[in-house]
């Protein structure tokens, strides 16, 4: 698992270079081909050892995470920010950020409780600002620039059974792909691994990678919302932790290719790998943009369930990760079915 190294790296949509460089450096000796495309996707190929293979298979996971951009440096030295991707502003008060290439510390203060007139006013981006400890605009400008990216400043933590950190969506998927690359499996066909950019701002990177790879079948590896908390009635949960990977039958804009979906479910059943259904159709993944490419690439979606994604402290159950990895391995072993 590489999540311990991937999670702390800053890599908001459009600024994935550090994530890409880490992955590139780590996998370069383990793959047969490795290149970066025009838009910043990193594409790796593991060739099959068999001479006659039936086609090309591809995994996709996105490198980018949600975060922020500095939109203004104010006269009092504080920064205005806007979100990149969906970050609930209610998560921001009292948090620390790391800003720009110099990793400048900034804190999102909040009016002291003693001084608040209306304690239930909801925090909004318009009335939040980032304090970098500089009292004037001219001083702040020495440390940060308008357009700098920012992420939550939080450590990765590993416990016996759980992991805590930021950016699990979708460094979890990236880590799964890196694990598959390191497994050195006896692949029955060529497998591409696409580490893609700009998912959080509208599924923008994956289509380009699909165009480059031209896979016969694609599987998108995601980290998805678990709703299992005491404030949400069970009927509203999309997934929950503890029951293995979530398999998507449909999400926003895309009904998963029937053949691919059946193949995933049937393989999991036959090989006795625990799985759950993703039980809501809200939210989208790169499968939509991949399915639109070429004359329509059959794409499936497999996700690690995870609590509090898009926040500073996501919680993942390690078993879910490992069972997902196991499912991917048996799918590769059984992959001939889908490519024939």
């Amino acid at each position: 698992m590489f999540l311990n190294e991937l999670s702390p790296i800053s890599g908001v949509s459009g600024d994935e270079k550090r994530v890409r460089e880490f992955i590139k450096k780590t996998i370069k000796d383990k793959v047969d081909e490795l290149y970066e495309d025009k838009i910043g996707n990193l594409i790796a190929l593991k060739k099959s050892k068999f001479s006659s293979t039936k086609g090309k298979f591809a995994f996709f996971a996105h490198m980018d995470e949600v975060g922020f951009m500095v939109t203004k440096i104010n006269e009092d030295g504080k920064l205005s920010i806007q979100p990149i991707g969906g970050v609930d502003p209610r998560l921001l008060p009292g948090k620390r950020l790391r800003i720009g290439d110099k990793n400048i510390l900034g804190v999102i203060g909040f009016k002291a409780i003693h001084l608040q007139e209306n304690k239930t006013d909801v925090p909004k981006y318009q009335n939040l600002s980032v304090d970098i400890g500089m009292g004037k605009k001219s001083e702040a400008e020495k440390l940060v620039n308008v357009g700098d990216y920012a992420v939550f400043d939080v450590p990765f933590e590993e416990y016996d059974s759980h992991l805590i950190g930021k950016a699990f969506d979708d460094r979890g998927g990236c880590s799964l792909m890196m694990d598959l690359i390191f497994e050195n499996l006896a692949l029955p066909f060529d497998v591409y691994f696409a580490f893609v950019v700009q998912e959080e701002v509208g599924l923008r990177g994956s289509g380009i990678a699909a165009e480059e790879i031209k896979p016969d079948v694609a599987i998108v590896l995601e980290t998805t919302t678990a709703g299992d908390n005491p404030e949400l009635e069970e009927y509203r949960w999309a997934t929950h932790i503890g029951d293995g990977p979530a398999i998507t039958f449909m999400h926003r804009g895309y009904v998963v290719n029937k053949k691919v979906y059946d193949w995933i479910i049937n393989t999991a059943e036959r090989k006795n790998v625990k799985y759950q259904y993703k039980r809501r159709t809200a939210g989208g993944t790169d499968a939509l943009s991949i399915a639109k490419r070429l004359s329509g690439i059959p794409a499936g979606v497999i996700s690690i369930p995870c609590r509090y994604i898009h926040g500073p402290s996501s919680v993942m159950f390690k078993d879910d990760y490992h069972i997902t990895l196991k499912l991917l391995k048996v799918l590769l072993e059984e992959g001939e079915v889908i490519l024939s």
């Binding site: 609930d88 009292g94 949400l232 949960w237 898009h310």
Partner: peptide, 26 residues
């Protein structure tokens, strides 16, 4: 929301807590 807590048990043990927050998707 999103804050990490150190919980000090009267048994002398230190526990981790994460203040949960439902992701925007749901």
């Amino acid at each position: 929301p999103g804050q990490r807590l150190r919980i000090f048990g009267r048994d002398g043990k230190i526990y981790r807590g994460v203040v949960g927050m439902l992701a925007p998707h749901l």
